[in-house]
Simulated scan of single mutants.
Amino acid sequence: MDHLTVTAPGAGQDAVLLEDVTVTLSAARTAVIGENGSGKSTLARAIAALVPAASGTVTVHGVDAEQDVKALRRILGMVFANPAAQSIMPTVREDVELTVKALRDDAGRKLAKDEVAGRVEAALAEHRLTELADRPCLSLSSGQAQRLAMCSVMVGQPQVVIADEPTSLLDGRHRRIVADRLLGGAGRGRFQLLLVTHDLELARDCDEAVWIHDGRLRAHGPAAQVVGEYERFLDQEFAGEAAGQPR
């Protein structure tokens, strides 16, 4: 990101959601942390070209995010907090199959039917969805739906995965499953991860972190260091509020 600024229409003048963010994220696993309304999700959506930049540029693995959205879609996948918004096919298998059918072999040809079927079944097994393969997507629990969302994204073999609060609606068991898929051995080395999260334990497990505060880049560095700075800030804010001081 180079001098990235994102705005939204407001009464009288535009509201600034992100202001002059310049940073290069090269680690395998990067956490994005900050308070509600700080601009974390806006940052993720700008990288994914889901919101336009008012000024500045975003480059993802050599692709200009705004100028070549088609190329960006080939290398980047996004997992949202609400997985129900991502499933567009009637059943679990069909949803995964939709992604696989869009893949091409090394010669640029569509995959053969037997290869499509093989990849779909392998992906379902990897994400513990085989027994749910013929279930309607709308019948899944939040945890099951999040596993499906990750499966449908990862089976497309993206170079970059952005996960925006992927554990916020999950119970403890599914949080562990999702964390393993994104941060553990299952995901390591297969894609670069950008994890937007309030879960500071997950953030600390990343390689680096960025802290967004009031739409600006507050800190960037090793995850443990940045998370520690953010926790000290929160402690100071809480102590001030407890003493009756205005924020």
Rank of each mutant, 00 (worst) to 15 (best):
A28E: 10
T167V: 06
F238W: 13
D235F: 05
T7V: 08
D235I: 06
Q13I: 05
L138N: 15
D164A: 02
D134I: 00
A179F: 04
P166E: 02
D106M: 00
L140T: 11
I177R: 06
V16N: 10
L132V: 09
G34C: 06
I33F: 00
V196A: 07
A46E: 00
A125L: 05
L170Y: 00
G172H: 12
R29W: 04
L234H: 08
R173E: 12
A123G: 14
Q225W: 03
R232V: 01
V155S: 12
V226L: 04
D180V: 02
Q144N: 09
A8P: 14
P90M: 05
L103P: 14
V196G: 11
D68P: 13
A243V: 08
T30V: 10
R218T: 05
R128P: 11
A219G: 11
G77P: 14
H213F: 03
L195M: 01
R204T: 13
G215E: 04
R74M: 03
R29A: 05
L200C: 09
P158D: 03
R45L: 00
R176F: 04
A46D: 08
E131A: 04
G244V: 07
R74S: 14
L129Y: 02
E121D: 15
V196L: 01
V178Y: 08
G34N: 07
A243H: 10
